[in-house]
């Protein structure tokens, strides 16, 4: 397990996920409608960044790497697409054929990139603090029904083996001459790769269902977990406050903006 002992034992994975949800909700406050608010999300991203620093250099390094993977390519796309193709733009800075670099387009793209940075920063922090399997188990421990959380946890656990099998099937089919070539050949190569893989997984699912039933999954009593996280009433309250607070801020900010718009229209 990759997370540090402090984060693992003191900070419950479900609390990290509640914080991630709260941050994602706050990211969708209409920042661009506020004066100088367009880039506020970028500054707010410093909050999860600071938490990552507080959790230790390995967590911060994982957070930075996660942000680079999850945010950077999308931010570049947002800047390029809206920077170069923004028909609503008036203030043209440069143009060449279809390409029109407008001030409004760049600002819009940059604002979107800033918002997306904040939106993903929380879940990236959760992933830097805990492994995906721990996050799924944390959800299970937080009281969500087993039929919701088991597939999450099981998928993450079984994924490496499933990938190995998919690769083995692909290698076997390639050895029989079903290798990539023209588009038609590649389309023809698709069913022999996916169908045996899927049928194999569904056969195993049958055995797994019987095992789960024998272990009491269909009974009303929840099995006891031996996961080592500390979950306290304070953390449970914090989780409710984070999710409730995030929702409240989002709804109020949009209602306020709608009220201002209605007043402006009626005053015209």
């Amino acid at each position: 397990m990759k997370s540090e002992s402090l984060a693992r034992t003191v900070w419950h994975p479900a609390t990290s996920l509640a914080l991630a949800l709260c941050i994602a909700l706050v990211a969708f406050v209409p920042w661009a409608a506020m004066s100088h608010g367009r880039f506020a999300p970028l500054f707010l991203t410093l909050i999860p960044g600071s938490l990552a620093v507080w959790a230790g250099p390995p967590v911060f390094a994982r957070w930075l790497r996660g942000m680079a993977i999850a945010w950077l390519p999308l931010a570049v796309s947002m800047l390029l697409v809206h920077g170069l193709f923004y028909p609503e733009g008036i203030d043209v800075l440069w143009s060449w054929g279809w390409l029109r670099v407008t001030r409004e387009g760049w600002l819009f793209g940059a604002g979107l990139a800033a918002r997306f940075a904040l939106a993903v920063s929380g879940i990236v922090l959760a992933s830097a603090l805990h492994s995906a399997a721990d996050l799924a188990r944390g959800l299970e421990q937080s009281g969500l029904p087993l039929r919701w959380t088991y597939p999450l946890r099981a998928t993450i656990g079984l994924l490496p083996a499933a990938r190995r099998r998919a690769t083995a099937i692909q290698d076997a089919q390639a050895a029989r001459g079903l290798a990539a070539g023209s588009l038609f050949q590649r389309v023809r190569a698709l069913p022999p790769r996916i169908v045996p893989f899927a049928v194999g997984l569904l056969s195993e699912a049958d055995v797994r269902a019987q095992a789960l039933a024998l272990r009491g999954m269909d009974s009303a009593v929840r099995p006891t977990s031996i996961a080592p996280w500390t979950d306290s009433s304070r953390q449970r309250m914090l989780r409710r406050a984070l999710i409730g607070g995030g929702l409240l801020v989002l709804v109020l900010s949009h209602a306020l903006l709608a009220g201002i718009a209605v007043r402006a229209l009626s005053g015209r």
């Binding site: 597939p151 699912a205 049958d206 797994r208 039933a213």
Partner: peptide, 16 residues
Amino acid sequence: RSASRMSALVTAAILI
């Protein structure tokens, strides 16, 4: 439609 059967089916579906 037991929880165990549906959970196992959903797990296989996600992996697929």
